[in-house]
Simulated assay, not measured.
Amino acid sequence: MENTDKFGKRISIIGNEMPRGMVWDDTRAFLAVARCGTLSAAAQNLNVGIATLSRRIERLESALKLPLFVRQQSGYELTEDGAELIEKAEALEAAAHAFAVGADTQAQMSGHVRLATAENVATELILPELPAFRAQYPDLLVELVTDISTANLHRRDADLALRMVRPERGNVTLRALGTLGYGLYCSTSYELRRESNPDLGYYDTDDFITWGEMYSHLPAAQWIERILRGRRPALTTTSLATQVAAAKAGLGLALLPHFIARNSGLVCVDTDLGVDQPIYLVIQTDLAKSRRIRALADFLIDVVARNSERLGG
């Protein structure tokens, strides 16, 4: 016969059908009293009250429709029926223990976790820190998804994400971790041109490097569009890496995250632009208590906190 214990595990009871209403805690109580001989010793062993333990024994006897113990002043002595059930109760105990061990093993840091984030955040922020995480959790595979235009937690394309845009839908839990600061950057050569040319330096005559049409929704792209007021940019691209390269080549001004641009030898022209973005940790709500997800989430929280000054600029 098969039934389920309190963990939901299907357990076989050899040669005996488990009655309706029987629960694993009552069987534990039965074994404890049988082994200890008294309610007080068994209650101490299970870390429960004597009254609670007594109720469990009575509930089990009622469910089985059998007297399991003879109550004596010196303690509890098994009846013949109770003694015959010890082996089966121990089989149930072993099965429950095996299930608990299996569940614990499943909860160990193994398997994989899918993280979605922007490519620049992955390459400049997460990957340099990832060896320490790998050393701590060598059996946990991190799957890094940087094509965030297609990674959607609502569709379960990822388990968790670091994003600069607050999700508006989906069964997700989010936490603001910090701020991603932006500045207007250019090459040293372009800055010298601005300083030597009185017609430059007021943005309305500057050259700009911006995002292509499919990324026009980004705050940086929208800021530049407002500044250009219909003028054509010097260049449009589809990645931050090409914008950094274009700025280094002297093609114009680019609106870039500080932590990316400041490692590229570029000059910061302005920081008060109103385009800084919050950094959100977003997790599938039904996965938020998973130990694997929690481990990676805690790692990301720590990484952002330790790099807050660099990220905010």
Rank of each mutant, 00 (worst) to 15 (best):
T242S: 11
L228T: 04
G170C: 08
F299L: 03
S40H: 08
D139E: 15
R35Q: 14
R306C: 03
A295S: 11
F7D: 14
H154D: 14
I14Y: 13
L53N: 01
A288K: 13
R310K: 13
H258M: 08
R35L: 07
F208M: 08
K88T: 09
R226M: 12
G201I: 10
W223R: 10
V172A: 07
D207I: 02
L235V: 07
A95C: 12
A34N: 01
P278Q: 08
L92F: 11
T236A: 03
A305D: 09
L180Q: 13
L160G: 00
T237C: 06
A89H: 02
T105L: 15
G37Q: 00
R193I: 03
E213H: 06
G181E: 06
G230R: 10
A295D: 04
L85W: 05
T105N: 13
K248D: 01
N16Y: 15
V113K: 01
D270V: 12
E168D: 14
P233H: 03
Y190N: 01
L85C: 03
T205H: 12
P67R: 15
E58W: 08
L296D: 01
T238E: 07
G250R: 02
T4R: 15
E191A: 13
D302S: 14
R226Q: 14
E119K: 13
D286H: 14
D276Q: 10
D81Y: 10
F259D: 08
L92S: 04
R231E: 00
Q72T: 11
T146V: 05
Y203G: 01
F133L: 11
T4K: 15
R226W: 07
V275A: 10
Q72W: 02
V113S: 02
L180G: 03
V267Q: 03
N45V: 09
V33L: 06
A118H: 09
A220G: 11
R20C: 04
F30I: 04
L228C: 05
Y137M: 02
H258V: 07
A158G: 05
T179Q: 12
A297G: 05
D298V: 05
D270E: 14
D298F: 05
A32F: 00
S110Y: 09
T210C: 06
D157N: 15
L85V: 04
S54G: 13
T271W: 06
V142Y: 00
I50K: 15
A234W: 00
C36V: 01
R231H: 01
